[in-house]
C-alpha cells in the first residue's frame, strides 16, 4: 500500500517535462492520472527514482475538431470522453469504449494517454485506437513525431514511444454512427477478457476491427477485415468473417479465461460488434 520513496517534480510546460525526462532517463516515470502507475507503485512493482507529474501542464486536456479530425489531449480523462457531446456526434466509438473502463471513480481520474502508454494487453482503449487508425503525436528532445496506431502497440506493456518522449495528443478520424464496442469483462478487475471495437465504413464497404484482452497485445483483426471488404454486411457474411477474429494470434490463458475461451469470445464479440455497428449505420 505504500510506494517506495521517489522524487517528484511538476513541470508547468511540456518543454520542461521533456527536459526533465531527458535528464532523468530510465529512472523517471511520467505521471498523468496515475491510474496505471500508482497501483504499480503501491505494489512496488514500479520503483522509479523520479516521478514527473504532467498533470498541471496547461492545455493538455481537450477534445476538439481540427482540420477534419478529432484531436484529444493527453491528459483528457475517460470521463471527459464518455460525456463529450462532440465525440458522441463525430467519433461515437470513443464515448462507448470509455463507458466500459473501470468504474466511475477510475474514469474521473484515469486518462486516455496514461492508459495507452501503459499498453496493458487487456485495457479497453487499444481496441479503439487500432480500429480507428488513430495517430499518436509525441514530443521529445528531437521535436514532435507521429506514430500510427498499427505501429504503436509493440508488445506486452510496450509501445513505440521512446523513453524520452511524451505522448501529447491522439488524433482520430470523424466517423459515422456505425461503430460498436463489445466487451467481455474480467469481473474482478474490470479489464477486458475480450474487447472488440468495430468501425464500419459503409460508403467504402470496409470494416476495421481492433481486439484487446485476447493476446499479449491488442491487434487489428485483418483476416476479418479482408473477408468483409467489399462485401455486404449480411448476417452470414459477418458471422463468417468474425470466425477469423483470432486467426494468427496466440490467445492468452489465465484463471479467468483459457486461451480457447478467449479465442471464442474474440470471435463472438466480433460478430456481435459487427452486427451492432452495422445496425447503427
Amino acid at each position: 500500500m505504500i510506494p517506495a520513496a521517489f522524487d517528484y517534480s511538476r513541470p508547468q510546460t511540456l518543454e520542461e517535462a521533456v527536459n526533465l525526462l531527458a535528464q532523468h532517463g530510465e529512472a523517471a516515470k511520467l505521471l498523468a492520472g496515475g491510474h496505471s502507475l500508482i497501483p504499480a507503485l503501491k505494489l512496488r512493482l514500479a520503483q522509479p527514482k523520479t516521478v514527473i507529474d504532467i498533470g498541471r501542464i496547461a492545455d493538455l486536456s481537450y477534445i476538439r475538431e481540427q482540420d477534419g479530425r478529432i484531436v484529444v489531449g493527453a491528459m483528457t480523462t475517460h470521463h471527459a470522453i464518455e460525456t463529450s457531446a462532440l465525440l458522441e456526434e463525430k467519433c461515437p466509438l470513443l464515448p462507448e469504449v470509455a463507458r466500459h473502463i473501470g468504474d466511475v471513480q477510475v474514469r474521473n481520474r484515469g486518462t486516455l494517454a496514461g492508459s495507452i502508454v501503459h499498453a496493458d494487453p487487456a485495457a479497453d482503449w487499444p481496441a479503439a485506437i487500432l480500429a480507428l487508425d488513430a495517430e499518436m503525436e509525441t514530443v521529445g528532445p528531437d521535436g514532435p513525431r507521429v506514430i500510427a496506431a498499427k505501429k504503436f502497440f509493440v508488445d506486452l506493456f510496450q509501445t513505440a514511444l521512446r523513453s524520452d518522449e511524451i505522448l501529447r495528443e491522439i488524433r482520430f478520424p470523424v466517423t459515422a454512427k456505425s461503430v460498436a464496442y463489445v466487451k467481455t469483462v474480467q469481473r474482478a478487475s474490470g479489464f477486458a477478457i475480450a474487447g472488440v471495437a468495430v468501425v464500419v465504413d459503409a460508403p467504402r464497404m470496409t470494416v476495421s476491427v481492433g481486439i484487446t484482452g485476447v493476446a499479449a497485445k491488442a491487434y487489428r483483426a485483418t483476416a476479418v477485415e479482408t473477408k468483409l471488404a467489399g462485401q455486404s454486411l449480411s448476417a452470414e457474411n459477418m458471422a463468417a468473417a468474425a470466425a477469423k477474429a483470432a486467426n494468427r494470434v496466440e490467445p492468452l490463458g489465465d484463471i479467468h479465461a483459457s486461451s480457447e475461451y478467449r479465442a471464442h469470445l474474440a470471435q463472438l464479440n466480433t460478430r456481435r460488434a459487427l452486427v451492432l455497428a452495422a445496425s447503427r449505420a
Partner: peptide, 12 residues
C-alpha cells in the same frame, strides 16, 4: 468528482 483516494498522491 468521486475519486479513489488510494490511487491519488497527495501532491496531485
Amino acid at each position: 468528482q468521486a475519486v479513489k483516494a488510494c490511487t491519488i498522491l497527495a501532491v496531485q
